[in-house]
């Protein structure tokens, strides 16, 4: 009995929460023109989320490329196909590793900060203050963060992909003994425009997911400081999961879409 009730409760809150997030997305999109009026706020969010995450994105990107190159390179070497390493690094970093892992680090760094910030505002009545002044918290707080995330996730992804590809080349030349021009030639031979389109179009969705999940969870925080901590933890878990699940569906839909369009 207890377990059944728990499971029912779990499903119930899952649907309630996801419904509320879709509502928040709708309201954010409706209020999007407000981002122009609140440009200074949007820019400062971009700065905070995007610019200061650049070093981390670069560092992570570098290692994604190096690890992918080393791992696949050593296997390929046994098969005598080590020259192909460039094409494998290119395909996996551009389509999958770059976008997803960049989204992950943004969840952890930017998403958590968003939830903690909005959560603190919620438990200290700052959100109620905004509402009492007739200011919509969605317009004032969520819209700038949403715009910043949707704009910055793709930029950070490009950045970490470029560095990742370069990191892969570094390993290919120094460890695997593949000449740089061979590495890049194989990469650009196998990479089609639609691969890039698939990888990049995902990042906009990831940005939107992170912003909506983290803002929603922050705005709903209750129970003081402890509640903010819990909300932050939940926001990171939920947004990571949502990014992964959406990635699965996006791969199947987007690859058909972009292949028919560009392939």
């Amino acid at each position: 009995m207890g377990i059944v009730r728990k499971i029912v409760h779990l499903f119930h809150s899952f649907f309630l929460e996801s419904g509320a997030m879709v509502c928040l997305l709708g309201r954010t999109l409706l209020d999007l023109p407000a981002a122009l009026r609140g440009m200074p706020r949007t820019l400062s969010c971009m700065m905070q989320f995007g610019f200061y995450t650049l070093p981390l994105a670069a560092f992570i990107g570098l290692f994604i490329g190096m690890v992918t190159s080393l791992q696949t390179g050593l296997e390929l070497k046994e098969l005598g196909l080590v020259e192909q390493v460039g094409s494998i690094v290119g395909l996996s970093v551009v389509q999958e590793m770059g976008p997803v892992i960049t989204a992950f680090i943004i969840c952890g760094r930017v998403g958590a900060a968003m939830t903690a910030e909005l959560g603190t505002m919620a438990v200290t009545e700052e959100i109620d203050v905004l509402r009492s002044l007739g200011i919509s918290p969605v317009r004032f707080l969520v819209v700038p963060r949403f715009v910043a995330a949707v704009a910055m996730v793709p930029i950070l992804t490009v950045y970490s992909i470029v560095i990742g590809v370069w990191g892969g080349a570094l390993v290919a030349t120094s460890v695997l003994g593949v000449a740089p021009d061979v590495y890049y030639k194989r990469m650009f031979d196998s990479l089609e425009l639609y691969h890039v389109a698939i990888g990049m179009s995902k990042t906009f969705v990831f940005g939107a997911i992170i912003a909506i999940v983290c803002c929603h969870t922050g705005l709903r925080a209750t129970n003081g400081v402890e509640g903010v901590g819990k909300a932050t933890m939940r926001a990171v878990v939920v947004s990571l999961t949502a990014v992964l699940i959406s990635d699965f569906y996006l791969i199947s839909y987007l690859s058909d879409f972009w292949k028919s369009l560009l392939g």
């Binding site: 603190t120 200290t124 009545e125 700052e126 109620d128 203050v129 905004l130 009492s132």
Partner: peptide, 13 residues
């Protein structure tokens, strides 16, 4: 049209 003065002030930090 209504002003509410919160008990603890509740300023935006």
């Amino acid at each position: 049209r209504i002003g509410l003065i919160f008990q603890g002030g509740a300023l935006l930090n």
